[in-house]
Design a protein around this nucleic acid. Structure first.
Lengths: 161, 161
DNA sequence: TCCTCCTCATTGACATGTCAATCATATGAT
DNA sequence: ATCATATGATTGACATGTCAATGAGGAGGA
């Protein structure tokens, strides 16, 4: 049975070849994510989620953001962010303050310890990205990976309002 | 500053362009994973992890596998598998049996309810793969995605013994 | 004003994942 | 036979993620 054989007939399901490409794609991105997370955590004590939050806060005006702006910046649901901030606050990386403009709101402020941890993690993180991603591919493949991801993201956004 | 400008000079860190491609690549594969997981769970009550385990057992001789063989088949650490099997056993999808050949070992057996759930999930799962992955890309992009993933996986395997 | 509706953010319950430690059994050397 | 060691699998502690429910405050119309 060739690569263009549908897994089931007459229902527009993926062919075997498409399924093989899908499987290696997801399994590899998952393995890559796990490896990068393990390295970052070993070398810096930060998780990728910590890193993202600290990056967004570092780049913000006054190193502070409204909780909802931060959620947009990192692309997470509110509840996920809320849980994560609780853990980061417990570790002294960030601090919550009441918002003057809207008493419902919260402002998330980068603590000194958080800034230090972030700066110490930047080079290890970028080095890992180079070793695990950039060094593995040709420049053309890197660009193609970006294009493919953009196409997938556009398609995904179109069908998840 | 152009796309070939190193983020930091003289240490072989990724360029801004490489970093952009990396970021869209990981963020998109993560979003895709989450969307597929949510759909599968809504439509079938199974998580992607459940599905993988049930698939491996369905394809095995006698619909049973040694725990370690199952771990290899799905590519997980033992402890992760053990935790997951505990949850699946609680739901009646699989069953553990003592192993005749090696009294340390365990055999994992597909339960009737697990087989039923798996068969009911196959078409929804494949449909979601088509909608979210296959339909988003050209045939050339699908093949390229597979090639890129294989290159990443080979590189990753080479440096994680 | 008061009432309704919307938004901001948090919480609790639970599913999932990682790591290190543990326990029991097999295996091989003496 | 005995002992040291390796292997198969599980467990506990904890980090992370999702969903649904909640509380608490703003915003606008009757």
């Amino acid at each position: 049975m060739g690569d263009d054989t549908p897994v089931r007939r007459g229902r527009r399901l993926p062919t075997r070849g498409e399924l093989r490409d899908w499987r290696v794609f997801t399994e590899t991105s998952e393995a890559l994510r796990a490896e990068l997370a393990a390295r970052l955590h070993n070398e810096t004590g930060l998780s990728p989620s910590d890193y993202r939050v600290l990056l967004a806060l570092s780049e913000a005006e006054g190193e502070r953001l409204r909780s909802s702006e931060l959620a947009d910046a990192v692309g997470w649901e509110r509840s996920r962010l809320s849980h994560h901030l609780k853990r980061m606050e417990r570790r002294g990386l960030i601090r919550r303050e009441d918002c003057a403009a809207d008493s419902r709101g919260a402002e998330i402020v980068l603590e000194k310890e958080g800034a230090t941890a972030f700066h110490g993690a930047t080079v290890p993180h970028l080095t890992a990205v180079r070793e695990l991603f950039v060094d593995a591919l040709t420049p053309e493949q890197i660009a193609a990976a970006g294009e493919i991801a953009r196409a997938l993201a556009a398609h995904l956004d179109a069908r998840t309002p």
